[in-house]
Design a binder for these strands. Structure first.
Length: 421
RNA sequence: GGAAGGGUGGCUGAGUGGUCGAAAGCGCCCGCCUGCUAAGCGGGUAGGUGGUCUGAAACUGCCUCCCGGGUUCGAAUCCCGGCCCUUCCGCCA
């Protein structure tokens, strides 16, 4: 969330940012409630102050004549504080609904059409035969099974079998190894269920609860991304500047209800209720966060380069950005069979928006006051769609699929996928 | 799941109704001392959120001893509920 202080000082910037992000932001209501809260708080505190002074006096003197006035003040203060608390709760609820502002380099725009391609790598491969989609390839090889998954779990689920399952596992391991060995990340295996507080911390709640699955009867949610547990890893802590930056990489399954995407990407291994993802999370000092976004994005891109997949990087426009994001890049890899780009990564910086919610702080130097960290995260990468792009890019005329060089050591003895176990 | 104990500042750890936002130690900061990063001496050092103020600084109010309620003029301290941790038992992979 934003600092109340910041909203008071820059209400127009906050209004503009919300409008350009396409979010409803109750800024005026918030400012009004905040004003009333401060008024009420002042009154309550005046009363409390007098009560405290008398109480202190009574502590030493035991002067019984003070008691009636003390009782009176006590009751009065309680009433005023109750009113102030109600306002403060109202204010906090409103505050949680205010989206983050964005960086000046973010393109202004309403829809995905306004995103800006900042760079491309490689070219669209050409084939001397009719290309097929990953789901045709996968089903023909018997390594992807949507029908049986539908019977077991419903639509938007999939089984991977044999070489398909091994391929995904190999890709996960390849990505984890790349980020830990070459990019300096610490591997984390995080809880796949988190509590409500954690979901608030990263901003999935209160506004986007419909997108997540909740465990019945318990205060637990299935994580929609490892961003949630990993960004919350140091919640309520006071870190030392010397520990920063913290770089974490986590594999996890991700669970999403896809509430708002009925009819979209219904075919194939693209938009599922459960998918695997390798996620990068960085906790950095404020001054370092924009540079860290470029670094993180580059590290996600490296996965695609090693896999030899053509891709492009988009700077997301205001309207296509998330609620809490300060700046965001999407990585889109080319899927020749589908004939379109698939979003395989989203890399974002949140400034102190999440840190404030999750209470992620550090002490800049000895004797200095605590500050909020800046948080970043990015997929590196989402397995489903990256796997699709591999199948479609490396497909052969005979229906088999060449295993990319980068994955050979992770699939010993398998140079081509031919539907084996 | 059952029993017992426990959650206090950056850290360790005292504190069972008022002069306690909280002893002591560690760490850190400033100064002194010692002719060379140690020891010693003195002082300082929680966070949050308001107000005064153009702002900074400074001063000042309030809140915060896991969370939420309650008792009381007054709660770190007493009562109730919750969460978490430790140990033992049970169960289980």
């Amino acid at each position: 969330m934003l600092a109340m202080e910041f909203i008071r000082a820059h209400p127009d910037q906050v209004r503009r940012a919300a409008a350009l992000k396409g979010e409803e932001a109750p800024v005026d209501q918030l400012l009004e409630v905040d004003r009333r809260w401060r008024e009420m708080t002042a009154a309550a505190e005046t009363s409390r102050a007098e009560q405290n002074a008398l109480s202190k006096q009574f502590g030493s003197s035991r002067e019984q004549t003070l008691l009636p006035r003390m009782r009176e003040l006590s009751a009065q203060a309680k009433a005023l504080i109750a009113q102030a608390d109600a306002l403060s709760r109202e204010r906090d609820e409103l505050l949680l609904q205010i989206p983050n502002v964005f960086h000046e380099t973010v393109p202004i725009g309403a829809t995905a059409d306004d995103n800006v391609v900042v760079r491309e790598w490689g070219t669209q491969p050409s084939f001397g035969f009719t290309v097929r989609t990953h789901y045709d390839i996968g089903e023909a090889l018997g390594i992807m099974d949507f029908e049986r998954a539908a019977r077991v779990a419903g639509s938007r689920f999939a089984f991977l079998k044999g070489e398909g399952a091994r391929l995904e596992r190999a890709m996960v391991q390849f990505m984890l190894d790349l980020h830990t060995r070459e990019h300096g990340y610490t591997e984390v295996l995080a809880p796949f269920l988190v509590n409500t507080a954690a979901m608030f911390g990263t901003g999935q709640l209160p506004k986007f609860g419909d997108d997540a699955f909740r465990v019945q009867g318990r205060d637990l949610w299935l994580i929609p991304t490892a961003e949630v547990p990993v960004t919350n890893l140091h919640r309520e802590e006071m870190l030392d500047a010397a520990q920063l930056p913290l770089n974490y990489v986590a594999y996890s399954p991700c669970f999403r209800s896809e509430a708002g995407s009925a009819g979209k990407d219904t075919r194939g291994y693209i938009r599922l209720h459960q998918f695997s993802k390798v996620e990068l999370v960085k906790l950095v000092e404020p001054d370092a966060s924009l540079g860290a976004l470029e670094e993180l994005t580059g590290q996600a891109e490296e996965v695609l380069r090693r896999l030899g997949l053509h891709y492009r990087v988009l700077s997301m426009c205001t309207g296509d950005m998330g609620f809490g994001q300060y700046k965001k890049y999407d990585l889109e890899a080319w899927a020749p069979g589908l004939g379109r780009y698939l979003e395989v990564s989203s890399c974002s910086v949140f400034s102190d928006f999440q840190a404030r919610r999750a209470n992620l702080r550090y002490r800049p130097g000895p004797g200095e006051s605590p500050r909020y960290l800046h948080t970043l995260n990015g997929s590196a990468l989402a397995l489903t769609r990256t796997l699709d792009c591999v199948l479609e890019t490396y497909q052969q005329p005979d229906g088999s699929v060449t295993v990319p060089d980068a994955l050979r050591s992770y699939l010993p003895g398998v140079d081509y996928l031919r539907g084996g176990v």
